[in-house]
Nucleic acid binder design. Structure first.
Length: 369
DNA sequence: GTTGAGCGTT
């Protein structure tokens, strides 16, 4: 489970009855290599059921494909990540933490350097100087591959690690609000954090937003991400309705999850979480904590400034390049060029200092405004 | 032989 993680079968809904697997394959090959294409048919009659599945060889193909509607044999078809368990995809952060930065390392320096590993979509250097920065890649795998490494940039040995705290738990993502909130939960360095998946629970959304009436994912994706886009990118989440009374093996992580996801103050979160994370609440209220958990709720009573809208907030950023086949998805002719400039808003979410910060190892408090 | 929201006989 590594490289293939984010390529998943995609369901194609709305196929004309006449469309064959060959047609299907041919159509989607305009997006990239197609590993599999099938049309579901009635066993007896052989008649198409009007939907099918495809699998791409590359994640980018999948992304582009998911980003638009498709005119196949005269009908508009939708491509989605299916509900089946196979759709359970690990999600990988696109953003890495770069520690041991010196003050003379500019964003351009970082961008130039890291670009040799893959397209860099954002570089953020906290101001005032804090000896670390964040580099965001288009490809989460690139980001992931660099984690744990030391790199020499302009003679400076920097250390790359995951921008998100490790924690265990499932990986589910939903909407842009989560992303917006993610920014509030400070992605401190992770070196001495809870072992487990690099994937933080912070990326989980609370259930409710963006979910269709039947619990299916509603699309609604926007740019400015530290992560590749959610369900549109093949990161589907089975909404489990949250919480679960079962074994919380890591209540702290859970607390982090909710605290970063919910736009409420700690007290409310505490109420919501019940007794599970009182300890964490305590820590949060004590901003000078030593826990190494950097989730930081917004100022009490002050909602996150990120937009809370559920729908499209414009197709800026990450998705824009995927929509080059036509913003209305009408061309049926996806662009074949590489990703264009992306994420114009990548730097708009400014991380700011938090008075409680101590060093880059354990107490990196950041706040999103 | 029809149909048009959905979720994959192998």
């Amino acid at each position: 489970m590594e490289t293939k993680l984010r390529c998943t079968d995609l369901i194609v809904l709305g196929l004309p009855w006449k469309t064959t697997e060959q047609n299907l394959r041919e159509y989607f090959e305009t997006f990239g290599e197609v590993l599999m294409a099938q049309v579901k048919k009635d066993a007896k009659s052989g008649q198409s059921k009007g939907f099918g599945f495809i699998r791409f060889g590359s994640y980018e193909s999948q992304l582009r494909c998911l980003a638009q509607r498709h005119m196949i044999d005269g009908r508009w078809c939708d491509v989605k990540v299916p509900n089946s368990k196979e759709g359970m995809i690990q999600q990988v952060p696109c953003k890495v933490f770069v520690g041991r930065c010196t003050e003379d390392l500019t964003a351009d320096d970082l961008r130039d350097y890291f670009s040799k590993y893959g397209e860099v979509t954002d570089v953020f250097i906290p101001k005032p100087f804090r000896a670390f920065s964040f580099v965001t890649f288009l490809d989460p795998e690139v980001a992931q591959s660099l984690c744990g490494e030391d790199h020499i940039i302009k003679g400076v040995s920097v250390h790359v690690s995951n921008a998100a705290p490790k924690s265990e738990g499932n990986n589910k993502n939903f909407n842009n609000q989560v992303n917006s909130n993610m920014r509030r939960g400070a992605p401190g360095p992770v070196e001495n954090n809870v072992p487990g998946n690099y994937q933080g629970n912070r990326y989980m959304g609370h259930s409710g937003n963006n979910m269709g009436p039947n619990g299916w994912n509603n699309p609604g994706n926007r740019g400015n991400l530290d992560m590749p886009n959610l369900q549109a990118l093949g990161i589907t989440g089975q909404n489990n309705g949250g919480g679960g009374g079962g074994g919380m093996s890591n209540p702290l992580a859970m607390g982090g999850l909710n605290l970063s996801a919910l736009p409420v103050n700690p007290a409310l979160v505490a109420a919501a979480l019940n007794q599970a994370s009182w300890g964490l609440i305590g820590n949060l209220q004590n901003q000078g904590n030593d826990q190494g958990y950097s989730n930081q709720p917004g100022p009490p009573g002050q909602p996150p400034s990120g937009n809370n809208s559920i729908g499209n907030s414009g197709n800026s950023g990450f998705l824009s390049w995927m929509n080059q086949g036509g913003g209305d998805g009408n061309t049926g002719n996806p662009g074949t060029g590489g990703p264009g400039p992306n994420n114009p808003n990548a730097s708009q979410g400014a991380w700011q200092n938090h008075p409680g910060q101590r060093d880059q190892k354990s107490n990196t408090f950041l706040k999103y405004e």
